[in-house]
Simulated scan of single mutants.
Amino acid sequence: MSQLLRRATLIACSATAVLGLAACGPDNANPSSTASAPGPAASTAGLPDGNKLNALLLPATAMPPKFKLDPSGSQSTGDGAIPPASPSAVPADKACDMLNGTGWVNSAGIIAASFAKNNYVDEAQNMFAQELDAYRGNDAQTVMANLKKTLTACHTFTVTQDGQNFYATVTLQSLPGVGDEALQAVITSPEWTGGSTLVAARVGKVVVATYDNEQSNTGTAGVALTKTLVKNAASAH
Rank of each mutant, 00 (worst) to 15 (best):
M1F: 06
M1T: 13
L4G: 11
T9S: 13
I11Q: 02
T16M: 13
A17V: 00
N30D: 12
P31S: 03
S32A: 14
S33L: 04
A35R: 11
S36T: 14
P40C: 01
A42Y: 00
L47Y: 11
G50T: 03
L56P: 10
L58G: 06
A60I: 12
A60S: 07
A60C: 07
T61R: 14
P64K: 10
K66N: 07
S72M: 14
S74K: 15
S76E: 03
T77M: 04
P87C: 09
K94M: 11
A95G: 03
N100P: 02
T102G: 00
G103R: 09
G103P: 11
W104A: 06
W104N: 02
S107H: 04
G109P: 06
I111Q: 15
A113G: 11
S114Q: 10
Q125L: 13
N126Q: 09
Q130E: 02
L132Y: 13
R136P: 00
N138C: 00
T142I: 15
V143W: 08
M144I: 12
L147S: 09
T150E: 11
T152L: 06
C154W: 11
C154L: 09
F157W: 12
F166R: 10
A168M: 08
T171L: 06
T171P: 00
L175T: 01
G177T: 00
G179W: 11
D180H: 00
A185S: 04
S189R: 05
P190A: 12
E191D: 15
A200S: 07
V203Q: 03
G204F: 12
K205I: 09
V208S: 04
A209D: 01
A209S: 07
Y211H: 13
Y211M: 07
D212K: 11
E214Q: 15
S216N: 11
S216F: 08
A224Q: 04
T226D: 01
K231V: 10
